[in-house]
């Protein structure tokens, strides 16, 4: 079991609920992934409550914990208000805090993020900040009251995978006791395995599963990769070497000439 801030979770894979071909496939993918936590959002209700009701019923039937997000918020005020509205609707103080700073890269506005995190932590929220891999920002978020950090490994939806391994490794080294979840940028199961091998506690992904040709199969593949990466991290990985080293013992080798 994975102990996340006092909550026991069966899986280290957190899954987004957006962009699936159908609600049925979303439900099947959630089941196949084995996830214990799904992310959700709040949007303007334009059908008298009926469009939200369908998704609300679906999410409740999944039997998993809900992590609402503040996706699309570009200011501290927007993010804080959205978080408070999400707390009321979803009945949880968990919030994936996004304060977007750039339309093109969707990179977080880390200054606004720290400010919003402080306000929400003081208000009793358990803030999961979507941040960069910057160590100083991470320290500020912890000072603001965050108990967990969610650095990107590449831009949202890019599927590029971890391209700054050194920064991720450094983050793990600097914050050995803080739960670290890679959020955003994962494209393949091998990407997930890579960051789990680095010692990250969990991954959060959405597009790579939802936009796969077979989202259910991809959910299962990511689940296995996350488990494999975690077990590899705990088992002690062999460090790369510059020379060849025979794996078969050389002592006792027959001599035929």
């Amino acid at each position: 079991m994975f102990d996340l801030l006092g909550t026991k979770l069966a899986s280290r894979l957190l899954l987004g609920t957006a962009q699936y071909p159908s609600p049925t496939i979303l439900a099947e993918a959630v089941k196949a992934s084995g996830t214990s936590v799904v992310t959700v959002s709040l949007r303007r209700e334009m059908a008298g409550g009926r469009s939200g009701q369908q998704f609300w019923s679906l999410v409740n039937s999944l039997g998993v914990r809900i992590l609402p997000n503040t996706a699309g918020c570009h200011s501290v005020k927007e993010a804080v208000t959205t978080a408070k509205m999400a707390r009321e609707v979803f009945g949880t103080s968990w919030i994936k805090l996004e304060v977007i700073g750039n339309h093109d890269t969707l990179q977080p506005d880390v200054f606004g993020l720290v400010e919003a995190a402080r306000i929400l932590c003081e208000d009793g929220f358990m803030v999961f900040p979507y941040t960069t891999d910057d160590l100083v920002v991470a320290e500020r978020l912890l000072e603001a009251g965050c108990k967990v950090l969610m650095p990107w490994c590449a831009p949202i939806g890019s599927a590029l995978g971890p391209f700054n391994i050194m920064a991720l490794r450094s983050m793990r080294g600097h914050f050995p006791d803080v739960p670290l979840i890679v959020d955003a940028g994962l494209g393949r199961p091998s990407h997930a395995a890579t960051v789990m091998e680095l010692g990250f506690d969990a991954v959060l992904l959405n597009t790579a599963v939802a936009k796969a040709a077979d989202p259910v199969g991809m959910a299962r593949a990511f689940s296995k990769a996350v488990d494999a990466g975690r077990e590899a991290y705990g088992s002690g990985l062999l460090e790369p070497r510059d020379v060849a080293v025979p794996s078969t013992p050389t002592i006792g080798r027959a001599v035929f000439s």
Partner: peptide, 10 residues
């Protein structure tokens, strides 16, 4: 006035 409801999210 803003009226929001649950929606898919990542």
């Amino acid at each position: 006035i803003e009226i929001l409801s649950p929606m898919q999210g990542g």
